[in-house]
Amino acid sequence: MGTDTFNFDKKELIKQSFDQMDIHLQGTQYSLAQKVALTCRILFDNGHDSALAGQITARSEKPGTYLTQRLGLGFDEICAGNLLLVNENLEVLQGDGMANPANRFHSWLYRARPDVQCIIHTHAVHTAALSMLEVPLEISHMDNCVLYDDVAFLPEWPGVPVGNEEGELIAQAIGKKRAILLAHHGLLVACSSIEESCLLAIAFERAAKMQLLARAAGAIKPIDPVLGREAHDWILRAQRNAVGFAYYARRTLRKKNHQYCLE
Rank of each mutant, 00 (worst) to 15 (best):
G175E: 11
D149P: 08
K10R: 11
G218T: 13
G72C: 00
K256S: 12
L262G: 01
Q172E: 09
I174C: 04
Y148G: 07
P222I: 13
G74S: 04
V162P: 12
C118Q: 02
I180G: 11
E230P: 12
S192E: 10
N164R: 04
D9V: 02
D149M: 07
G186V: 09
D150N: 12
Q117L: 05
K255V: 10
A99C: 03
L262K: 00
F245I: 03
P101G: 10
E61Y: 03
K221T: 15
V243T: 13
Q259G: 13
D45P: 09
E168Y: 01
N82V: 06
N46G: 00
M210N: 01
R113N: 09
Q20V: 10
P136H: 07
T5V: 10
A201N: 01
P222H: 12
I223Y: 03
R59Q: 05
R206W: 03
E77T: 00
M98V: 13
L93N: 07
R206D: 02
I220N: 04
G72V: 01
E77Y: 01
I14T: 11
Q239A: 04
A37G: 03
V86N: 06
L90Q: 07
D4G: 01
F6M: 04
L169V: 04
A128R: 08
R70I: 02
D115F: 05
G74R: 14
E263F: 08
F245V: 04
A246T: 04
W157C: 14
R59N: 02
V36H: 10
L133Y: 14
S140M: 13
L181E: 04
A219R: 15
R237H: 12
A128K: 08
K15I: 05
C261Q: 10
R111Q: 12
T57F: 00
V160S: 12
R111F: 12
P161F: 09
Q69E: 10
M21K: 13
M98D: 09
Q259A: 15
A242M: 07
A203D: 03
I170H: 00
V116E: 07
A51C: 07
T3G: 05
L13F: 06
N87V: 11
L199Y: 10
Y66P: 05
C118T: 03
M98R: 11
I170M: 01
Q16E: 14
E230M: 14
E166Q: 12
G81L: 02
M21P: 11
A80F: 02
L43V: 02
G186C: 06
N257K: 11
N103C: 13
I194V: 12
K62Y: 02
E134I: 15
E196K: 05
T57I: 00
A183M: 08
L43R: 00
G159L: 10
R254P: 09
G72P: 01
A238M: 09
H258Q: 07
I23E: 09
L262T: 02
T5A: 06
H185G: 01
G163P: 02
S31F: 00
N241C: 08
Q172M: 06
L43I: 02
H106R: 09
L137I: 05
G167H: 06
L32G: 04
G95C: 09
T39L: 08
L200D: 03
L181S: 08
